[in-house]
Lab assay of single mutants.
Amino acid sequence: PKDQAKKEIEKALRNGDEEKAKRLAKKYGISDDDWKELKKRVS
């Protein structure tokens, strides 16, 4: 599910692991808009 994916990506971003977050986003098909939203929430 997308919500689970977003949680994992957000966690990776919080850990400062943007490479992992990007890989997860690609793997789960997270859209650019969702990606920006996640980045905003974390920063």
Rank of each mutant, 00 (worst) to 15 (best):
Pro1Ser: 13
Pro1Glu: 13
Pro1Trp: 12
Pro1Lys: 11
Lys2Cys: 14
Asp3Asn: 09
Asp3Gly: 09
Asp3Val: 09
Asp3Leu: 10
Asp3Glu: 12
Asp3Tyr: 11
Asp3Cys: 08
Gln4Gly: 08
Gln4Glu: 12
Gln4Leu: 13
Gln4His: 11
Gln4Val: 11
Gln4Ala: 13
Ala5Thr: 04
Ala5Ser: 05
Ala5Asn: 06
Ala5His: 13
Lys6Tyr: 15
Lys6Val: 15
Lys7Asn: 12
Lys7Arg: 12
Lys7Gln: 12
Glu8Ser: 05
Glu8Cys: 12
Ile9Trp: 01
Ile9Val: 08
Ile9Thr: 02
Ile9Met: 03
Glu10Gln: 05
Glu10Ile: 15
Lys11Cys: 08
Lys11Val: 11
Lys11Tyr: 09
Ala12Trp: 10
Ala12Asn: 02
Ala12Ser: 04
Ala12Val: 05
Ala12Thr: 03
Leu13Lys: 00
Leu13Thr: 01
Leu13Pro: 00
Arg14Val: 05
Arg14Gly: 03
Arg14Gln: 05
Arg14Asp: 02
Asn15Met: 14
Asn15Thr: 09
Gly16Gln: 04
Gly16Ala: 03
Gly16Trp: 03
Asp17Gly: 02
Asp17Cys: 08
Asp17Arg: 05
Asp17Asn: 09
Glu18Val: 10
Glu18Trp: 12
Glu19Tyr: 09
Glu19Pro: 08
Glu19Lys: 10
Lys20Glu: 15
Lys20Met: 13
Lys20Trp: 13
Ala21Phe: 01
Ala21Arg: 00
Lys22Gln: 09
Lys22Ile: 12
Lys22Pro: 00
Lys22Leu: 15
Arg23Ala: 14
Arg23Cys: 14
Arg23Thr: 11
Leu24Cys: 02
Leu24Arg: 01
Leu24His: 01
Ala25Asn: 01
Ala25Lys: 11
Ala25Asp: 00
Lys26Met: 13
Lys26Asn: 08
Lys27Leu: 14
Lys27Gly: 03
Tyr28Lys: 02
Tyr28Gly: 02
Gly29Asp: 08
Gly29Asn: 11
Gly29Met: 09
Ile30Thr: 02
Ser31Pro: 04
Ser31Val: 03
Ser31His: 04
Ser31Asn: 07
Asp32Trp: 14
Asp32Ala: 09
Asp32Thr: 06
Asp32Gly: 07
Asp33Met: 07
Asp33Tyr: 05
Asp33Gly: 06
Asp33Asn: 08
Asp33Cys: 05
Asp33His: 09
Asp34Ala: 07
Asp34Leu: 05
Asp34Trp: 06
Asp34Lys: 03
Asp34Asn: 03
Trp35Ser: 01
Trp35Ala: 02
Trp35Ile: 06
Lys36Gly: 05
Lys36Cys: 15
Lys36Arg: 12
Glu37Trp: 06
Glu37Leu: 07
Glu37Thr: 05
Leu38Cys: 05
Leu38Val: 05
Leu38Gly: 01
Leu38Thr: 02
Lys39Pro: 02
Lys40Val: 07
Arg41Tyr: 06
Arg41Leu: 15
Val42Pro: 03
Val42Lys: 03
Val42Trp: 05
Ser43Trp: 14
Ser43Gln: 15
